[in-house]
Design a protein around this nucleic acid. Structure first.
Length: 274
DNA sequence: CGGTGGACCTGCTGGC
DNA sequence: TGCCAGCAGGTCCACC
């Protein structure tokens, strides 16, 4: 579910309502997520005031003052949202943070691929999950020349390369497919064979697709909702992802689907030729 | 070193 | 209706 635009949607949705609030009570399911729960997690959060909410790649960073930051990853199926006192408890809720205005920050994650960690704020770049991340795709450091430099020695196909967070952080399967479609580049093209023109088109397409998705509040496929519980609407704008057999919006030829490095790749064989 | 495939989990869908 | 296979937005690790 959550790729960069979905995490950005959650981040923006949480920032105003929770910044400045104090955590008065914490409970967890105790079920293991991708990492074990931090030692004394509940106790360490109680009484702390939320100072800021930010995003890095697909990680939410919640600064809880006194020099510590909550690192929160939603995995494949995680939802982090605000619930009122009378809202129904989600079926797979693993953490509940009660704030001093009696709102509850609820983390629900059926597949338990999510990650929660507590880390010194001034050491965030050394966190094992954050230290090797490449540039943010919406930042100025992700530009066509950078991309081409990174690809010059990479012989594998461009699609799986876009999912490598060391090269560029936060692009997932949906937006890799959509960006390559928009740039009219074959997902099977070896990275090192992309021309500088193609790199320009690809960087532009990645930015465009991500920005349009953020504007639409992310993509809801089965269950994604923002911090306010509302779904995202970008799935309505998918041009290739999940559209196997449907007509390409440019040439009307059917969209194909293949497995590539274990993940589904959707593409138009006519518009995205090698 | 670079690339692939499996593992981690649960839930949904479609076919029989 | 019920069972089963296949699939899913992410990341890490072992293996070639």
């Amino acid at each position: 579910m959550p790729e960069l635009p979905e995490v950005e949607t959650v981040c923006r949705g949480l920032a105003t309502p929770i910044t400045g609030r104090t955590i008065i009570k914490v409970s967890i399911s105790g079920k293991r997520l991708r990492l074990p729960w931090p030692v004394n997690f509940c106790h360490r959060l109680q009484g702390r005031t939320i100072h800021a909410v930010a995003r890095r790649a697909k990680y939410l960073l919640i600064d809880i003052c006194q020099g510590e930051t909550l690192i929160w990853h939603l995995g494949m199926s995680g939802c982090l949202r605000l619930l009122g006192e009378n809202d129904v408890t989600p079926k797979h809720q693993h953490a509940l943070l009660t704030l001093d205005n009696h709102m509850n920050l609820s983390f629900d994650d059926p597949r338990r691929f999510g990650l929660v960690d507590l880390w010194p704020s001034d050491q965030l770049t050394h966190h094992p999950s954050l230290h090797a991340l490449g540039p943010e795709p919406l930042s100025e450091s992700f530009h066509p020349k950078y991309l081409q430099q990174q690809l010059v020695s990479r012989r594998s196909a461009i699609k799986p390369l876009l999912l490598d967070s060391r090269l560029v952080a936060g692009i997932g399967n949906i937006y890799a497919n959509e960006a390559l479609f928009e740039a009219r580049i074959s997902p099977f093209e070896p990275g090192c064979r992309l021309s500088s023109t193609q790199c320009v088109r690809l960087v532009t397409a990645i930015r465009d697709v991500l920005l349009r998705a953020i504007e639409a509040g992310g993509s809801t496929i089965n269950d994604f909702v923002g911090a306010d519980g509302k779904p995202g609407y970008f799935a309505h704008q998918f041009r290739c992802y999940g559209r196997e057999g449907a007509g390409c919006s440019h040439c009307q030829q059917p969209i194909h689907r293949l497995q590539q490095a274990g993940r589904s790749t959707f593409y138009c064989p006519s518009c995205q030729q090698q």
